[in-house]
């Protein structure tokens, strides 16, 4: 029920993007991949999930960090949907975005993805200050923790370093296996068990590499017009596969 509503909601937003109307930077669900049920829970993200489930963040802020592909955007999206949060993209965040967000009456929560790539630090600082003042929770996500990101102005750096940050740790075997399966399923790529095992064994053990691999396999499968065999996979993956 809730899921269907969420999809409708996502569809409605996508339709709007198609018309080019609407100036608020509120790209809610861009793709159906970021649903709660497709998130792979594992020990490496236990702490992150616990922090997100808990509302008592010091300074009402939390910075979520982890390597590319670790699932930050996914977790952030789940959180944002659950909290009715406005979602913003750190890299393109502008004063105008911040102003329109802050004008929203009864703003519940705000999520900023790619906060480590923020271009306009003053705009983010304005957002951070205004939300703190109103005790509105702010979730930020980035590849590195605030202490290792160059943030300007210094006030912004100091504020973000003072809040809690939680990492998504390196993925373990089970998570990688589940992730690979999910990535292939999302792309409707069918592989035999032996090929799957071979991929799992030979691909680098990082989520980002698996995403890259799934994309390459997708393209290769489409081009070849036949199921993915080990030989086809080896060709498609090339340098991604160890030592080749």
């Amino acid at each position: 029920m809730a899921d269907a509503a969420q999809r409708d909601h996502a569809d409605a937003v996508c339709r709007d993007e198609g018309t080019g109307a609407g100036q608020l930077a509120l790209p809610f669900v861009r793709e159906g991949r970021l649903r709660p049920e497709s998130f792979v829970a594992a020990p490496s993200n236990t702490a992150a999930r616990a922090w997100l489930d808990n509302g008592n963040w010091p300074e009402f802020r939390l910075w979520l960090w982890g390597a590319e592909g670790a699932g930050k955007t996914h977790l952030l999206t789940i959180w944002a949907q659950g909290r009715d949060a406005a979602m913003l993209d750190g890299a393109t965040l502008s004063d105008a975005d911040v102003e329109s967000i802050l004008r929203m009456p009864e703003l519940q929560a705000v999520a900023v993805d790619d906060a480590d790539r923020v271009a306009d630090g003053r705009a983010l600082l304005h957002l951070v200050n205004a939300l703190r003042e109103r005790a509105i929770p702010l979730l930020l996500a980035g590849r590195l923790p605030p202490a290792r990101v160059v943030l300007d102005p210094p006030d912004l750096a100091s504020r973000l370093r003072a809040n809690a940050s939680v990492a998504i740790g390196p993925a373990d075997d089970r998570l990688l296996e589940a992730l690979l399966l999910r990535l292939l399923a999302e792309r409707e790529i069918v592989v035999s068990r032996p090929v799957l095992d071979w991929l799992h064994r030979n691909l680098p053990r990082s989520p980002a590499a698996l995403v890259q691999a799934a994309d390459r396999l997708d393209r290769a499968g489409l081009a070849a017009g036949r199921p993915i065999t080990r030989a086809l996979a080896r060709d498609a993956l090339g340098s991604l596969i160890a030592g080749e």
Binding site: P58, E59, S158, R161, A162, A164
Partner: peptide
């Protein structure tokens, strides 16, 4: 040693973590 805000922030994090887990 940077400043008070970060110092307090660190302590708050520890306390929040201890409470949470």
């Amino acid at each position: 040693t940077s400043n008070v805000r970060e110092l307090e922030g660190a302590l708050n994090r520890l306390i929040a973590h201890a409470n949470l887990f």
